[in-house]
Simulated assay, not measured.
Amino acid sequence: MTTMSLAVRDSSTMLRRNLKRMLRYPSMTLMMIGMPVLFLLLFVYIFGGTLGNGLGGAQAGRAAYANYVVPGILLIAVAGAAQGIAVSVAMDMTEGIIARFRTMAIFRPSVLTGHVLGSLVQSMLSLAAILGVGLLVGFRPNATPIEWLAVAGVLLMVTFAITWFAVACGLVTKSVEAASNLPMPIMLLPFLGSGFVPTDSLPRGASWFAQYQPFTPVIETLRGLMLGTPIGNNGVLAVAWSGAITIGCYLWSRRLYGRDPSR
Score class of each variant (00 low, 15 high):
Ala60Gln: 05
Leu6Lys: 04
Pro217Val: 12
Leu6Gln: 07
Pro203Met: 15
Gly72Pro: 12
Gly153Pro: 15
His115Arg: 10
Tyr212Asn: 03
Ser110Ile: 15
Leu38Thr: 12
Val239Pro: 12
Phe101Leu: 13
Gly193Asp: 09
Ser242Met: 03
Trp241Arg: 00
Ala90Ile: 14
Thr3Met: 13
Ala99Pro: 10
Leu30His: 01
Arg16Ile: 13
Asn181Trp: 04
Arg204Ser: 15
Ala129Phe: 10
Thr159Met: 12
Ser262Cys: 11
Tyr212Ala: 06
Gln213Cys: 09
Pro217Trp: 11
Ile245Asn: 02
Gly34Trp: 14
Phe209Ile: 11
Met157Asn: 05
Val121His: 08
Phe191Ala: 06
Thr113Asn: 04
Thr246Cys: 07
Gly49Pro: 08
Gly258Leu: 09
Phe107Val: 11
Leu6Met: 12
Phe47Tyr: 10
Cys249Arg: 01
Ser110Thr: 08
Ile97Val: 08
Met32Trp: 15
Leu251His: 00
Pro185Glu: 05
Gly54Arg: 01
Leu117Glu: 02
Ser88Trp: 03
Gly54Lys: 01
Trp252Phe: 00
Pro203Asn: 08
Gln122Ala: 09
Ala240Phe: 11
Met226Glu: 05
Tyr212Glu: 04
Met14Phe: 12
Pro214Lys: 00
Ala238His: 05
Thr159Ile: 13
Val133Glu: 04
Gly170Asp: 03
Glu147Val: 13
Ser207Cys: 13
Ser126His: 04
Ile186Leu: 12
Pro190Gln: 08
